[in-house]
Design a protein around this nucleic acid. Structure first.
Length: 558
DNA sequence: GGACGGTGAAACTTCAGGTTGCCTC
DNA sequence: GAAGTTTCACCGTCC
């Protein structure tokens, strides 16, 4: 069987002279089939795509017009296209794409759809495409079987090879699929073939061995009353994959009860003789799917926030310190990396405002690299909510729009979690602050645009345009002349804005915008007293003046 | 002789991804 | 470990 592999490799070598680009060209131009190329980094996935695109002659391109149209759609997926968008556009024109986490969802979806339709002939990607996504191709080329890790370069797991190789062949439409695994050193060919092509996959390892995961599951199982007594707990873990794999039930039990003790310290679990149960707080944390350590970190630091935020003068540094606070959670990892040439900047930041941060740098305890990364990540976030365009963030920080979007999503979730915890702890003023900050993250805007983004069809770009033209509040829009508005946002949007502002017209709540007080009341009726709800609504009403002014049933945008 | 530009070797830097919370007619 | 980027020494040319 081993010979098959070698023979195949000989054939390929003769045909394509050992160059993967020739192999791709042969497949898409001669065989008229599609190819997926897997790389081990974002950069090399782009480089490979370029190499393929450059090798394709103009006269060989099919559906030029459609590709041109697609390339512009992909390029304009962002209001401020980045250099990455430009590079992608050039590849797409030749029917080639690169695909990795740096692209925004819209771009990825367009590429995947066009590949399925046969418009795009080759995709060069990181392992993103191997997991989950159903995107088969006639040929799969695995360019790298090694990947960088903190322990140096390591061979990818066999399981992952199978994931990638499994994309070859289109069930239902083609009889065969081919996978080519590139091995640079001739003398390794046999070993690599034996390992990956003919070898057995690794065993699936239980994730319960990872403490944060175990903590989350224990809290959730106890909170949901699935296991409550010592016996039930022991029985449950005895039957897990973890126990099956490690056999050492005693040490497993020891770990489980040690973690339960921590959860008791956190006051997420309470104990009555032999019976364990989730506290209100514990149930909430579990429902939020928040790591108990992070939840505790939130709770421990809550008084610091309250001291700082229960007054009207919130400075830029206060907002920065909150952002940095979130950047020091487990959930936010991996952080954006402070590169060697950026370190001095963040060391200076640390020196200048280190004392103002909620989480202080401890030279004996903290890891300086991680701390500098947290400062860089905070900087990126701060730029985002100061309306820095994606191309600026990409150039300045080397953070791509896709990575930014993903991290903003994590931030949104964490803000929501702390908001809920603040509510439980009756810190309503602080909760309001978080709510407002969340909307700023969702849209990437400064506070002054908050009223405007409550309108349908208005995001960060249009809101800023409106603001610059003097339409700063909803009342300004209500009073505005439609034609004048159209000059700023175009005719269609202007009509929509006027419609939204007409009397009796309810403004439709955008997804993810905070809830109205009536909803909050409904949601928490069981959890809090009438008085507490009254306080919340009073707080809310402070922000309602403008709403009364325009006599509308607006959403709560604060 | 000094400024400038081109060249190539050496040194340095970087390196995948994407779970989970709410809502809504 | 490999690929891309930056730095630096060296050399030739021109004014």
């Amino acid at each position: 069987m081993d010979d098959v592999c070698i023979i195949e490799s000989e054939k390929i070598r003769n045909k394509v002279d050992g160059n993967f680009v020739d192999l791709v060209l042969h497949t898409i131009l001669k065989l008229k089939k599609q190819v997926l190329v897997f790389n081990n980094s974002k950069r090399s996935s782009q480089t490979s795509a370029h190499a393929i695109a450059n090798a394709i002659k103009l006269e060989d391109i099919e559906n030029k017009d459609k590709l041109e149209e697609l390339s512009m759609k992909i390029y304009n997926a962002l209001p401020h296209p980045t250099s990455q968008c430009r590079k992608l556009r050039e590849c797409i024109k030749k029917g080639v794409a690169f695909h990795h986490s740096g692209l925004v969802t819209k771009q990825r979806t367009l590429i995947e759809k066009s590949f399925r339709e046969g418009l795009i002939k080759a995709i060069s990607s990181t392992p993103t495409l191997a997991a989950g996504l159903n995107l088969p191709a006639y040929k799969v080329i695995i360019k790298d079987y090694k990947r960088y890790s903190q322990r140096g370069m390591i061979d990818i797991p066999i399981l992952e090879y199978h994931q990638m190789a499994g994309r070859a062949g289109r069930p239902g439409s083609e009889d065969i699929g081919k996978t080519v695994l590139c091995v640079k050193d001739e003398k390794n060919v046999q070993d690599i073939a034996t390992k990956y092509v003919f070898g057995e996959s690794e065993e699936i390892i239980s994730k319960l061995a990872v403490e944060p995961t175990l903590k989350m599951y224990i809290l959730s199982l106890i909170s949901m009353d699935m296991i409550n007594t010592k016996e039930e707990i022991k029985d449950f873990f005895k039957s897990t994959l973890y126990a099956h794999q490690y056999q050492d039930i005693e040490s497993l039990n020891f770990n489980v009860f040690r973690i339960i003790d921590i959860l008791k310290d956190y006051k997420f679990v309470s104990q009555d003789d032999d019976y364990y149960m989730g506290t209100e707080l514990g149930k909430k944390i579990s429902k939020l799917y928040l790591n108990p350590d992070t939840a505790n970190y939130f709770l421990v630091n809550l008084p610091k926030f309250v001291k700082r935020f229960n007054n009207d003068s919130i400075s830029k540094y206060d907002v920065y310190s909150v952002i940095n606070f979130f950047c020091n959670t487990l959930e936010m990892r991996p952080l954006f990396r402070a590169y060697v040439n950026e370190r001095a900047v963040y060391e200076k930041t640390l020196e200048d405002i280190g004392d103002d941060l909620i989480v202080k740098f401890d030279p004996f305890e903290s890891d300086i690299d991680a701390f500098l990364n947290s400062l860089k990540t905070s900087d990126v976030f701060e730029s985002w909510i100061s309306e820095a365009p994606e191309d600026y963030i990409s150039d300045k920080y080397n953070v791509t729009p896709g990575e930014l979007n993903y991290k903003v999503g994590v931030m949104d979730w964490l803000l929501y979690c702390l908001e809920e915890i603040a509510f439980l702890k009756k810190e309503l003023y602080f909760k309001n602050f978080l709510k407002k900050l969340r909307v700023r993250f969702q849209f990437g805007i400064k506070s002054e645009l908050l009223p405007l983004v409550a309108l349908k069809g208005i995001g960060r770009t249009r809101a800023r345009k409106l603001f610059k033209s003097g339409y700063k509040k909803l009342l300004d829009i209500k009073k505005a002349d439609e034609k004048m508005l159209a000059r700023v946002v175009g005719e269609k949007i202007a009509i929509s804005l006027k419609e939204q502002m007409s009397d009796g017209q309810e403004v439709v709540e955008k997804p993810l915008t905070p809830k109205k007080p009536s909803n909050i009341k409904a949601q928490y009726e069981e959890d809090v007293s009438e008085d507490e709800i009254d306080v919340l609504i009073t707080n809310y009403n402070e922000f309602e003046e403008e709403k009364k002014e325009v006599n509308m049933n607006l959403t709560d945008y604060f």
